[in-house]
Amino acid sequence: MTTAQLRSEPMLTTPTRVLARTQETADTFTIEVEPPPGFSFRPGEFTMLYVYGVGEVPISISGDPDRTDTLTLTIRAVGKVTEAVGRLQPGDPLGVRGPYGVGWPMEAARGRDVVIVGGGIGLAPLRSAIYEILNHRADYGLVSIAVGFRRPEEILYVDQVHEWRQRFDIDLELTVDTAGDTWRGPVGVVTRLIPMLDFSDTAVAMVCGPEIMMMFTARALRDRGFAPDNIHVSLERNMKCGIGLCGHCQYGQHFVCMAGPVKPFSQAERLFGIREL
């Protein structure tokens, strides 16, 4: 079944299995899943993962969109279903639906500078966008990435982040909220990195993390001259069906699963702080 067919059969769960599992931090892990046949996705889209006998959970895709041999998902174990996913080992079965939603504005970003700001687990959905940019590097202008974590032990994709820092074609700044004296990098919240980023007035920003972090970041970007329409954030809502049927993710007249999760800050700002609508 191709992605087009999967998209036309949106409630269909495809049985698949775990290929690999990596523990990223104390509570966060990455699984590689055998993708349903013909599966493809755009950066920022999400899937519904089904753990047999436990339940279903929406998870953003954190892998390389050009890779068709694996579907990569980074998950923080914070509830019954995500904890159950965390216990899965290579070879274990699970179900996948999707991909769903509106992802990062990769097309709109072509030819323009890109600013990517991630906080904590928020780096996961942004990683797909970073892969996409690096796979087609010449299509984008300056690329500045700022990421923040609570502590050095909580840095996600730590080897990859160090690898990206060595590259000459992107600029990556990393900060932690607090550290011991062996840490040699910056300490402070991620918004403190924003004054150091390079971009032109037509740049596109992609921001992901907890809502409060996105709100502060988007406002700091706006203070540096970003138009709110050029700042994109990824909204997290309680998603169930993923296809606009159940209403669990509704805000106003929109459903986050259909109109999001990625939205321009100009539309998302008023939703921050609204828990359920």
Binding site: G119, G120, D177, T178, I212, M213
Partner: peptide, 11 residues
């Protein structure tokens, strides 16, 4: 910045 650190914005 200190207030934001206190708010634990990555939680």
């Amino acid at each position: 910045a200190a207030r934001m650190q206190l708010m634990d914005v990555y939680a």
